[in-house]
Computed example of a mutant assay.
Amino acid sequence: MLIHPWDAALDDAEWQTWLAEGRDFGILSVNGLPGHSPMTVPTHFTGDGDQLLIHLARPNPVWHAVERDPNVTFTVFGDYAFIPGPWRAGPGVPPTDGVPTSYYAAVQFTCRAHIVDGPEAKAELLRRQMAHFQPDGDHAPVAAGRPPYGRMLSGIRGLRLEVTDVRAKLKYDDHKPVEHRASVAVNLAARGQGLDVPTARQQLRRLDRTGPWKP
């Protein structure tokens, strides 16, 4: 992932806050088996200190690739929108000569995967995930040997992804003049399609923090 200086996270708290605002779904990318393409798996995840917790069905073909090479990447992205060329045309430039782009936020975790396969270890992983996704506790106890979840544990395997590096990108034209960025945010809010409104919020939030871009 290319990260220009103006697209970089302003600090760790920025991407950590962005994730904590309810972004808990991403793409696990695993090096493929010899002669095969890399494998990707969309899945929910839970943060646990310097680790990410996920679980997948035991028949998932990704396990063979993880066992062969535990070096993986986990990517979370959101607040994205297509920005048409006319919105980006500078002063004195015909609108049709403007160059379109994409806005988005993305966090990539480089990880070393550790497979969790013992019944109690898997139950503990699920308890941590349930504490995040169902914090009200409106579910049966998750325990090995106890219904309903105990009998299901054999059908899954867990992964603890030990995070070794984090790269965050928030691409919202921060290198453009203040007036340009404010204008694009207005256009996004007016268009109001897909993730236009949250994308505009991200752009204005970054604008408030950075003002004019300074190398």
Results as ranks from 00 to 15, higher is better:
residue 66 V to D: 14
residue 40 T to H: 11
residue 72 V to E: 12
residue 205 R to H: 03
residue 55 H to M: 10
residue 90 G to S: 15
residue 198 P to S: 06
residue 112 R to I: 09
residue 10 L to D: 10
residue 190 A to V: 04
residue 30 V to H: 12
residue 154 S to L: 09
residue 98 G to W: 10
residue 205 R to S: 01
residue 51 Q to M: 07
residue 91 P to T: 09
residue 124 E to D: 15
residue 38 P to A: 14
residue 120 E to Q: 11
residue 200 A to R: 02
residue 185 A to S: 07
residue 181 R to W: 02
residue 75 T to F: 00
residue 118 G to W: 02
residue 113 A to Q: 05
residue 205 R to N: 00
residue 93 V to W: 14
residue 109 F to M: 03
residue 137 G to F: 10
residue 74 F to A: 01
residue 167 R to P: 00
residue 161 L to Q: 03
residue 60 N to I: 10
residue 160 R to H: 08
residue 47 G to D: 01
residue 89 A to K: 12
residue 202 Q to D: 00
residue 67 E to Q: 15
residue 147 P to Y: 00
residue 109 F to Y: 08
residue 183 S to H: 05
residue 210 T to H: 06
residue 157 R to P: 12
residue 111 C to H: 02
residue 166 V to L: 04
residue 78 G to W: 08
residue 128 R to Y: 11
residue 151 R to T: 11
residue 102 S to Q: 02
residue 141 P to W: 10
residue 165 D to T: 05
residue 90 G to M: 15
residue 173 D to Q: 08
residue 100 P to Y: 02
residue 106 A to I: 01
residue 181 R to N: 09
residue 149 Y to P: 03
residue 48 D to G: 03
residue 187 N to D: 00
residue 183 S to Y: 00
residue 16 Q to G: 03
residue 83 I to G: 08
residue 110 T to V: 11
residue 19 L to Y: 03
residue 158 G to L: 07
residue 34 P to F: 04
residue 182 A to W: 08
residue 133 F to M: 14
residue 42 P to N: 11
residue 215 P to Y: 01
residue 167 R to K: 08
residue 25 F to Y: 14
residue 23 R to M: 08
residue 135 P to T: 13
residue 31 N to A: 13
residue 151 R to N: 09
residue 139 H to Y: 15
residue 23 R to S: 04
residue 52 L to G: 07
residue 79 D to R: 03
residue 66 V to M: 14
residue 171 K to P: 06
residue 105 A to S: 11
residue 121 A to E: 15
residue 52 L to E: 10
residue 1 M to R: 03
residue 164 T to M: 04
residue 179 E to T: 05
residue 26 G to M: 04
residue 177 P to A: 07
residue 197 V to S: 04
residue 176 K to S: 02
residue 40 T to N: 12
residue 107 V to T: 08
residue 34 P to G: 11
